[in-house]
């Protein structure tokens, strides 16, 4: 089943088309990895899907419903799509637990009382129980990023977007965050990742898309993409990235 479909998505900043007609299909339960050089449009594409950036042209469908209609209230869409950022962006004035409970309380109108057991369970599942009462600045980068993932999951999203979530981490902390993604994949979460972790993409992705100058230049299974890339640009990028 097609969960998320992008058709000819165009996003311009001034004269520069950062997304220049992107087509992408993400099936339910799939993990799709977007790879490509910085500036290829990976992050912008994810921000467009979450309606943080309005698109100039094309359409984005979630469960067959066009979510890119101009003037549509973005809140309901965003509540169904979780997003995790490179810089964690936890709210520094709240504990980890309050970070995760804010949106369910405000958006779904649920009480702390009913949320605490449910959200605590999420923290526990990702090995973060002991950090629930801590503030973001008391946590390591890896812990903060895992809390950010839990915060997004607390909304019970149908799709998760990950925008280079390990790029700001020390190398020894990358593993603990990527493990969370593997767990989510086993649980059947639909996920789109912008990533520079080629090894992880090769191992865990269902589909890999190579973005170049705002377009999906080539896509396929990790075996095809990393084993036998067809386009010269893809080959050049991978030669640099895998060096």
């Amino acid at each position: 089943m097609e969960k998320l479909v992008l058709e000819g998505v165009v996003k311009r900043f001034g004269n520069k088309a950062v997304c220049d007609g992107i087509d992408l299909v993400v099936k339910a339960g799939q993990m799709v990895c977007l790879i490509g050089a910085s500036g290829a449009g990976k992050s912008t594409l994810l921000r467009c899907v979450n309606l943080l950036e309005p698109i100039e042209d094309g359409a984005i469908y979630l469960d067959g419903e066009d979510i890119s209609v101009p003037g549509l209230n973005p809140q309901n869409v965003r509540a169904r799509i979780g997003m995790v950022f490179q810089s964690y962006n936890l709210f520094p004035h709240m504990t980890a637990l309050d970070n995760a409970m804010l949106a369910p309380r405000r958006v779904h109108g649920r009480t702390r009382g009913e949320l605490v057991p449910e959200v605590s369970e999420l923290f526990e599942r990702f090995g973060l129980s002991e950090h629930m009462a801590q503030y973001p600045d008391q946590l390591s980068g890896g812990q903060q990023q895992r809390v950010a993932i839990v915060r997004a999951l607390a909304m019970r999203p149908e799709v998760m977007l990950f925008d280079e979530i390990t790029s700001a981490l020390d190398p020894q902390l990358v593993g603990e965050v990527l493990d969370v993604l593997v767990t989510l994949k086993h649980q059947g979460m639909t996920m789109v990742l912008a990533t520079h972790e080629m090894g992880f993409a090769a191992e865990a992705a269902d589909k890999v898309c190579f973005l170049h100058n705002g377009r999906v230049l080539e896509e396929g299974t990790p075996q095809d993409m990393f084993g036998a890339p067809k386009k010269p640009e893809t080959r050049a990028f991978l030669a640099r990235a895998l060096k």
């Binding site: 943080l52 965003r78 997003m83 804010l102 958006v107 909304m155």
Partner: peptide, 12 residues
């Protein structure tokens, strides 16, 4: 980025 994170969660 704080605003973006909060909006992405569905807050008004």
């Amino acid at each position: 980025s704080q605003r973006a994170a909060a909006l992405s969660l569905g807050l008004s």
